[in-house]
């Protein structure tokens, strides 16, 4: 399963409004879900953040959870033009956020596999200094696709 195929243009927001960490997470969730479903997802994501920030360092965060509110794996990307405080592992502010929400039932363990893949891709993005590179959502998805291919080849 290819990651870029889980992403669509309308799920990539390259001008996400900067703000407090919780608000930014919430904005991103409400861009794909509404009402009680969104409230449930935000609550669960923030509980995950209580365990330790999902800011993995060098400007990228990957908030994630399983939730009864979704029926399939959903990914959304947000990028702020101004870095925000995410209490990241390296204390550096964050400007690229990958949001991943998975359904509770997940026989093929797609969730953890995809999450692991996004962690790898995020590390490539920081290594090659690509956080602000894509100018459009299409370019962003193409970039993810390329990184994903290069990682598969390496294996």
């Amino acid at each position: 399963m290819n990651l870029a195929s889980l992403l669509s243009k309308d799920r990539v927001n390259l001008s996400l409004k900067p703000g407090k960490k919780d608000d930014v997470i919430s904005d991103l969730v409400y861009s794909i879900r509404k009402g009680n479903d969104a409230a449930l997802i935000v609550s669960t994501l923030l509980k995950r953040e209580e365990l330790g920030s999902t800011g993995i360092g060098k400007g990228i965060a990957i908030p994630h959870c399983r939730s009864l509110a979704v029926e399939k794996l959903e990914i959304a990307v947000g990028r702020t033009n101004k870095p925000i405080n995410f209490n990241a592992i390296d204390k550096k502010p964050v400007s690229l956020i990958f949001l991943i929400i998975a359904p509770p039932q997940d026989p093929g363990n797609q969730y953890l596999i995809t999450l692991g893949k996004i962690v790898q891709i995020a590390k490539e993005i920081t290594k090659k200094n690509l956080i602000q590179k894509a100018k459009t959502p299409d370019e962003f998805i193409a970039m993810i696709n390329e990184i994903e291919k290069s990682l598969t080849k390496r294996k």
């Binding site: 449930l40 609550s43 669960t44 399983r66 009864l68 509770p104």
Partner: peptide, 10 residues
């Protein structure tokens, strides 16, 4: 119930 369930999965 939903909050509890999500939290348990987390």
């Amino acid at each position: 119930l939903k909050l509890l369930f999500d939290l348990d999965n987390l």
